[in-house]
């Protein structure tokens, strides 16, 4: 009796395993619609991963730009207070852009997790729909929904940061306009600008 009970318990545990098993895109048990759905969701993960990579690259490039900027006097102090102002504005603008890129990277990371969670959900639903396995769907769906909220939040934050960047840009170019309007030199800035970073 005890053995039977243990067997039943182990079978139940196996069938309701928490780890969602990967489904092959060549699984003969699945119809074409299901395979297409799975493939599309897997594509989403790949796209999200590529976005993370892109975001990392862009951040690295901008950080390198910021590092150089911090080490360079692009508007010579000898040019007066205007030069100091425009230098500060330029630095602030670049720092805010780095901040934006950091947030975009974070957002891309969360989006990747969401895509992965969605893939898990799709695999679980497909497996259940075609009687291949049984999963506890509630927690899986809950994970996806939580992740969606995280994505929505970071998107909102990114938009806010974008607004901050654009305000910083407004300040910078107004300051720059004043600076060049007084006939001050920008040659160092251009020498700095002629070098490619990253």
């Amino acid at each position: 009796m005890r053995a039977i009970a243990l067997t039943v318990l182990s079978l139940a545990l196996l069938s309701c395993t928490f780890e969602v098993q990967r489904l092959s895109l060549r699984d003969p048990r699945l119809p074409i619609e299901a395979l297409r759905w799975l493939a599309d969701t897997e594509d989403d993960v790949a796209v999200a991963r590529a976005r993370v990579y892109d975001a990392k690259k862009q951040l690295a490039r901008l950080e390198s730009y910021l590092d150089r900027l911090e080490d360079t006097e692009v508007f010579p102090k000898s040019a007066g207070s205007e030069a100091v102002n425009v230098s500060k504005a330029f630095l602030y603008y670049t720092e805010e852009r780095v901040e934006l890129k950091e947030m975009e990277l974070e957002g891309a990371g969360i989006a990747l997790k969401l895509a992965q969670d969605r893939l898990t959900q799709v695999r679980a639903e497909t497996a259940m729909r075609y009687d291949l396995a049984v999963y506890e769907m509630e927690s899986i769906i809950s994970d996806v929904e939580t992740r969606k909220k995280e994505v929505a939040k970071i998107q909102f934050d990114i938009e806010e940061q974008r607004a901050t960047v654009e305000k910083a840009a407004d300040t910078l170019w107004v300051t720059y306009g004043h600076y060049v309007g007084k006939g001050k030199t920008t040659d160092a800035f251009w020498e700095f600008g002629s070098k490619v970073e990253g």
Partner: peptide, 14 residues
């Protein structure tokens, strides 16, 4: 698209 509404609202706010 997840977060689309939030972005639109942020835009509207701006």
């Amino acid at each position: 698209q997840v977060g689309g509404m939030e972005v639109l609202l942020a835009f509207a706010e701006r």
